[in-house]
Design a protein around this nucleic acid. Sequence first.
DNA 1: TTGTAGGCGTTATCAA
DNA 2: TTGATAACGCCTACAA
Lengths: 350, 350
Amino acid sequence: MSRTIRNAPTIDEVAAAAKVSRATVSRTFGRPDLVNRETVELVREVAARLGYVPNQTARALSTGRAGNIALVVPDITNPFFAALMRGAQARARDQGYATFLGDSDETPELEDLLLTKLSGQVEGFILASSRLPKERIREHAQRRPFVLVNRDMPRLPRLLIDTGPSYAKAVAHLAELGHRRIAYLCGPKLSWSNRQRMQAVMRAAQSLGLALSCIQTSRPSFEAGQESTQQLLDAGATAALAFDDVMAQGAIAGLASRGLAVPADFSLVGCDDELAVRTYPPLTSVDTGCTAAGAQSVDLLTDVLRGAAPKELCINLPTELIIRESTAPPPTARQTRSAGRVGAPAMEQR
Amino acid sequence: MSRTIRNAPTIDEVAAAAKVSRATVSRTFGRPDLVNRETVELVREVAARLGYVPNQTARALSTGRAGNIALVVPDITNPFFAALMRGAQARARDQGYATFLGDSDETPELEDLLLTKLSGQVEGFILASSRLPKERIREHAQRRPFVLVNRDMPRLPRLLIDTGPSYAKAVAHLAELGHRRIAYLCGPKLSWSNRQRMQAVMRAAQSLGLALSCIQTSRPSFEAGQESTQQLLDAGATAALAFDDVMAQGAIAGLASRGLAVPADFSLVGCDDELAVRTYPPLTSVDTGCTAAGAQSVDLLTDVLRGAAPKELCINLPTELIIRESTAPPPTARQTRSAGRVGAPAMEQR
DNA sequence: TTGTAGGCGTTATCAA
DNA sequence: TTGATAACGCCTACAA
């Protein structure tokens, strides 16, 4: 009854105006191959003139296919998820789906709520970096098809961005530069990616004989990275691998505010590579190909929806360590090595 | 027919199991105040046991209220829009709405497509920074309630983030620092915000007697900012105001790759203040309060939907210039002024 | 307080 | 190739 909505023309009005049955109009838009060429044109014309657009809701009720999917993420503000969303939405659109966005603000309860509220209007979910207990995920997955991103649960279609090897490589890279004490700046406790990365770092550090401190944080945010500075220094580390680029960027800022420069005084490694090339100095980071991953997660979901169950329900996406300018030999080792770093003169303070 | 979706129980099954009419079940969920307490409990119980959840699609078809809104943006990857989305989605959820996201990739055609495809399932739109011709917007707005963000069209509910005064202030700030030739790094031609900001800069520059160059760019991206470096220098400018933080950040990187430091060799002003505090150096930027704006645009839309037409359909949001460390006196003027900039030592090159 | 019945706009099944 | 006619699941006057 909103006065701003003029009554949209229905299929019946088009049918009447075109002097055909409403079934023909329906077919014209849904299965034009079943309709006479000329009839199609006629109907299209009339429809256009009247401004008719098939009512998606009615169509959904009739067919059982909503034509929608939902992407649920912990924080759309994080460049990783923004890129994922971008890739997913574009691909979904290409396949004729509209995309809901659910931002859970890193809280399992909200995530759960979004899942139940959205489930009625959605053919399937892409659940990225879920913080939910696996039992809940299983329950939800029973109602609607799910694709998990960065969460590993047997028998559920999932897309795992495999950062482990790259983090191991990054540790080796730091070891080669001469670092002996390093730190891992943790992501969310409930994050699969965090566990994966932390484990990779732990193993690599151990096998290379490096001392490692794991530093807990409240949330994968710039601020958390910033606030971790003291602990980073207390740990006696000369380098750190952060859970992602955002935290690494925060750490750089935190160090800078204490007069410490990266990489002259401290080396830092990030992850996602969305931000990395934009920071100062540009971050050594793990490229996760997030935009492509978004698109691929949609492909996986639509495969499932189409019943074209892919033989392999678990897709592993490789990553790559990109070495830039945020990593260098530790301060004490510098004298004995070539120290010149383009555009990143060491500060004299401290 | 998907094998993963078990057939959801319908209102009739619940009614039968509870030995009431289906109207009673319907009321139990929609208007429980119209049903006997005990009956409500009974029905709820039975529904829970059966796992019944009202079918949102059927409800929407019947009531005409989809319970959905859509936010359409040019690029969800831009921190401004990500923050806007975050604020909007959260507020929409609080008000019982689910939110579609449409990313138009800066192209009017895609934007148009999204609008028509989404319109069937949505009670209203929030259209942010539309690149569409105003006639098209009017046509769409005729079908569904619209709230425009950063686009000024008479008689349409809109939320305008008023950056003009802050840009003028920024120009004055640069003038005070001693800059005589400045540049404006343009945003998208079709952007209202861009026009607003450019005009503010032009006027301020003129009234202060500063030389101004406007530098066109392809897209409001980091890369575009980076690529503008040559033109910035060719113009002989010693400072620039960018359309937003992303471009400013790109410009910093572009300058750095030529051995020029900000603010020692060049001053830069950004906009949005989402990124600003995270860059190096931290950007002098215009705070647009994007997250709050997202929430407020939803409020405005739901007001309209509720028929509670606000007396003022145009909301102007004030902004604030935040001075940080990316602005300083120009190189030539430096000798005669106090040059000490915390944490941003001048580079010796050039 | 509860029940009956018509309608929301499409699609799908059968005939023609 | 087209048309009539049930569903689809729910809401909502209107009646009881």
